[in-house]
Design a protein around this nucleic acid. Structure first.
Length: 490
DNA sequence: TGAAATGTTGGGGCG
DNA sequence: ACGCCCCAACATTTC
């Protein structure tokens, strides 16, 4: 009698290398059935947005091909996870289900319930860590609680044993005698959402596990040695751009970690080594984001610092739309927002600038920014998105103090000094000379007309005056502070 | 992973 | 020679 099949339930681990669930199942010499279940309603408000779904579709296509090359298939289903798994188990008489864990609160809870149910039915369940260097519970403060400040969090992580080496790629996957039925990928209708905006065009060659490995190699070959400077330069190709691949698990943080570590040992100069360590620290922020989300599950919607619940945000749909569409009149902000719409991605430095602008210059609630990013980013990740917005709004863990207001003109001049980034995404300003590129409203009339720009006609005048908006933001923050000191008695 | 306001210092012009 | 003022340049404080 042949051993019962094992289901390998794919989540955000769309790869064949360093995939513990698949590796263990394949090593057990029992038939393996890789399955992907589309059940977005189980993610509640934070079901994948439009851009994310478009990328997911591409990534699943690549995974299908890669599984086929290993002699296997990807079984695709949709419906409630527990019910769908139950049906599959029944159909193929599976004896085991393996998966790599997810840590988003709703999903972690769902998966634990499924585990309990399956185990109650006598099914073997094994789960693994494939998407973090350090799992949320294993890092604790001296008093046993979660961290709220990055530096001590990361220090504790670094004091632990190194993350384990990545597992080798699974090359041959044992097949069952009979495959269960499967949907076609396009039957998941991942691309048909009606909500705005449209989806970015994705080049298939840039999606999937192989593309992710290439991206990492290219980063190590070129940009990492100058990452200390390059990470802040949206006009350069100075960052890894691995966020999307990491979110979908086309590459694992362990793979990135060890590749960078070994690069450091071969690097010759001190600056390059420091740059690479700075990049590892960025992986630490990703860990920290997951740690926080796990321990403070309410934070995608509500501030970690409770006093910010009372902050008097403005409701301003017109300004919000101007921000979303890249029509604020501040070139660096508009360039970022248009890069986001056109490509589904934005440089991190610019994410901070546009975030600060929404929250502080426009005084619009950070949650509205988080929702827009969620809909438009191909790398949308609940942990990272939550941390980023709470950081910029000053209401999160280890956040920028509220009075730290980015000046979009100075930031533009500092990090896009030639204006190349602005000109790439805001073509109306293409002919404007560099000294004026970040503040067109201050350019002499002749300079503007020579560049073919008519403010308010083919490029907007600033939606707010930054100096005045900054003061307004500080006032709003001040009121929050005084309310805190002198709470209204009920 | 700011920026603006305010304070300090030191060189040079000048009476 | 000296004090005074101006004002960068830099440092510190404040928001």
């Amino acid at each position: 009698m042949s051993p019962s099949p094992c289901l390998v339930w794919f989540h955000r681990d769309l790869r064949l290398s360093d995939h513990p669930a698949l590796r263990e199942a394949a090593a057990a010499r029992r038939p393996v059935i890789p399955v992907f279940i589309w059940s977005p309603e189980e993610e509640g408000r934070w079901r994948p947005g439009k851009a994310s779904r478009a990328y997911l579709l591409g990534s699943l296509k690549q995974l299908e091909k890669d599984l086929q090359a290993a002699g296997s298939r990807l079984v695709i289903r949709k419906g409630p996870s527990k019910k769908t798994l139950g049906e599959l188990i029944e159909e193929i008489q599976a004896g085991a289900v393996y998966w790599n864990r997810r840590y988003e609160p709703a999903l972690a809870e769902r998966d634990e319930k499924i585990r309990t149910t399956l185990e109650g039915q006598g099914i073997e369940v094994r789960t693994f860590n494939a998407s973090l260097l350090f799992e949320p519970e294993e890092i604790q403060t001296g008093s046993g609680g979660p961290y709220r400040v990055f530096t001590p969090f990361w220090k504790t992580c670094r004091a632990k044993p190194e993350p384990s080496e990545p597992l080798p790629r699974v090359r041959k996957i044992p097949s069952p005698d009979r495959w269960p039925r499967s949907l076609k990928l396009n039957e998941l209708t991942l691309e048909t959402g009606k909500e705005k905006p449209g989806i970015p065009a994705l080049a298939p060659l840039r999606v999937g596990e192989k593309a992710a490995a290439k991206r990492l190699k290219a980063f190590l070959d070129r940009a990492i040695s100058n990452y200390a400077e390059g990470r802040d330069r949206p006009d350069w190709d100075g960052v890894s751009r691995l966020s999307t691949a990491l979110h979908f698990g086309e590459i694992s943080p362990r793979q990135v970690w060890h590749a960078v570590k070994s690069w450091i040992t071969t690097a010759s100069n001190r600056l390059a080594k420091e740059s690479a360590n700075g990049f590892l620290r960025q992986l630490g922020w990703r860990e920290f984001a997951h740690h926080l989300l796990f321990h403070y599950p309410h934070t995608p919607a509500r501030p970690l610092r409770a006093e910010y619940e009372k902050f008097a945000w403005r409701d301003d749909p017109a300004a919000l739309r101007a921000w979303q569409e890249g029509r604020t009149g501040y070139p660096i902000v508009d360039a970022g927002m248009r890069q986001l719409r056109e490509t589904g991605w934005m440089h991190n430095r610019v994410r901070m600038i546009v975030g600060s602008f929404l929250v502080k210059d426009l005084l619009i609630a950070w949650q509205q920014g988080a929702e827009w990013f969620w809909a438009t980013l191909i790398d949308a990740d609940l942990a990272n998105n939550t941390l980023g917005w709470q950081w910029v709004a000053g209401c999160g863990a280890d956040a920028a103090p509220f009075f730290r207001v980015f000046n979009p003109v100075l930031q533009g001049r500092k990090f896009d000094p030639e204006g190349e980034y602005v000109r790439r995404y805001v073509p109306e300003l293409k002919k404007l000379s560099t000294p004026h590129i970040h503040a067109p409203w201050k350019a002499p009339a002749k300079v503007l007309s020579d560049a073919g720009i008519e403010l308010g006609k083919n490029y907007p005048a600033p939606v707010v005056d930054h100096a005045a908006a900054r003061i307004r933001a500080l006032r709003a923050y001040e009121r929050l502070g005084s309310a805190e000191r002198n709470p209204i008695q009920l």
